[in-house]
Design a protein around this nucleic acid. Structure first.
Lengths: 222, 222
DNA sequence: TAGATTGTTAATCGATTAACAATC
DNA sequence: TAGATTGTTAATCGATTAACAATC
C-alpha cells in the first residue's frame, strides 16, 4: 500500500508521520519565519538546531520524513524550506473558520491577527446570549447560535472554534459536526467526543498553568 | 543521593519525573475533578483509564512515581487521589501572579475565573499603553509597566504572565526575572531566554492551530 | 578538488505496555 | 476465603541520537 512511510507519493501526502514530529513542525515554521524576516539566506542543520536547542540529527531526521530540502555542503535555503514547511502545514491556502462563544476568550481569538496572516479566516461569530448577539467584534456582527446550522449549510466552514463555557462545548461540537465541520479548535477544558474523521485540537490553557506550578515546586528543591 | 527515583523522601519531593508524565498530570486532575463533582467514590485504574483513553498500565505506572494511592482489590478512592494530585501539582496553596499586557488576550486571562478556583491569583496587571493604564479589569486597576519593579519589590509574586506583543516579550521577561519572579507563563510566540532556575511555560495557541491544519490535510487523504 | 553538510542507517535511549506476584 | 486490583518488574515499542557514505 504505502511503500515509503512518511513520504510523498502521487496519490497521498504524508503518511505515518510520528505525532512527536508533527508537534515540532510549527516550531520549525516559527524559527524559519524569523530567519526569513531577518533575510538570512541559508542555514545548516547544525546552526538551526543550535538556535532551536535541539540536535541537528533530529532536525534532519524530521525533515527527511517530508522530502529532501537541503543540499550537501550548503545546508538549507531558508526561503525555500519555509515555503515547503508552510505547504506541509497547509498555510499556503485559505482556511475558513467559525467561532462559537463571544466571551472574553472568544473576543481575544477573534481579534488576534496572527491567524489571518497565515490564511486562517474567521468568517462568523456565534453566541447564545441575547445581550451579545448583534454586537460587533473585529468587524463581524455576532450571530445567534440558533442560526449556526443554517449559516453552515449556506457557507460551509472548515474549522469550528469552541470558546464556550465547558458545559456547552460538547453540544456545540455536535452541532458543528452535524453541519459538516472538518476540524475543531477547542478552548474548553473538556475532552470532546466526535467521529474519528473530525480532527480536534485542544488548547490546554489551564493545564499549562498546572504544569508550570509543578515545575516551580520541583525547582524549589534544587 | 536519591536512592528512589521519582519518589518522595524527607528532604526532597519528586525527582526525575519524566516530562511525558508531568504533561499528563493535569489531565488526571481534570478527570478526577469531574468524578469528584459527580460524587463517584471509588474507581479502578481500568475504569479511569478507559474514560481517559489511555492504558491502565500507564495510569498505574504514572501514579506509582509519586506514591501508592490505591488499594488492591478496591482501586482508588476518588477524593483521596484527587487531593494527592492537587498537592503534587501545587494546587493546595495560593500562588500569586502578575499579568503584563492588557490587550484582548490579557483581559481574557484576567477574567478567567478557573485559575482563582485552583489558587492562582492575579494580583496586579501592567501595561505600556497610557490609554489602558488606569482602566479597570476584573476589579484590578491597570498599572504602568514602569512601576513593575517597584511593585514586585514591595509585593513579590511567584508567576509572571506575559500577554504582550511578541516584540516586547523578552524585555518583559528580563524585568520579571530581575525582580525575582519564579515562573513565567508566556503567551507570546517567542522562545524566551531566562536563567535556568526560572521556569517557563509557553502556551502555543498559534502552533496548535497549525497542528490542526496539518492533521486536517492528512484526514482529507483517507 | 577539498571541505562541508546532507539524507539515511544503525545504535541508543526512553516511554509504553504486558504480565504477575503481592495483597486488600 | 475468593475475586479483584494494585504496584512493580520485564518486554516491547517508538523516538532520539550518532555515525557515515553520498554528494554538492
Amino acid at each position: 500500500m504505502h511503500p515509503e512511510i512518511g513520504r510523498k507519493s502521487e496519490t497521498d501526502k504524508y503518511i505515518g508521520i510520528p505525532i512527536a514530529v508533527i508537534k515540532r513542525l510549527p516550531r520549525y515554521q516559527r524559527f524559519l519565519s524569523e530567519l526569513a524576516a531577518k533575510e538570512v539566506e541559508r542555514i545548516s542543520s547544525r546552526e538551526l538546531a543550535a538556535k532551536m536547542k535541539i540536535t541537528a540529527s533530529q532536525l534532519r531526521q524530521d525533515l527527511s520524513l517530508f522530502g529532501s530540502f537541503g543540499q550537501q555542503g550548503y545546508g538549507y535555503r531558508v526561503s525555500y524550506l519555509l515555503n515547503e514547511i508552510n505547504e506541509i502545514l497547509g498555510l499556503d491556502n485559505k482556511t475558513t473558520m467559525v467561532l462559537i462563544g463571544a466571551g472574553h476568550l472568544g473576543r481575544a481569538i477573534a481579534n488576534y491577527d496572527n491567524f489571518n496572516k497565515r490564511g486562517f479566516m474567521i468568517e462568523a461569530i456565534f453566541d447564545h446570549d441575547p445581550q451579545v448577539i448583534g454586537s460587533n467584534i473585529n468587524n463581524l456582527v455576532v450571530k445567534d447560535i440558533k442560526d449556526l446550522g443554517k449559516y453552515l449549510t449556506a457557507a460551509p466552514a472548515e474549522i469550528g472554534i469552541i470558546c464556550t463555557p465547558t458545559a456547552a462545548a460538547q453540544e456545540v461540537a455536535d452541532l458543528l459536526v452535524e453541519f459538516g465541520i472538518k476540524g475543531i479548535w477547542n478552548f474548553a477544558p473538556v475532552s470532546l467526543k466526535v467521529p474519528e474523521q473530525v480532527c480536534v485540537e485542544h488548547v490546554h490553557i489551564g493545564e499549562s498553568l498546572m504544569i508550570l506550578s509543578f515545575q516551580m515546586q520541583q525547582q524549589e528543591e534544587v
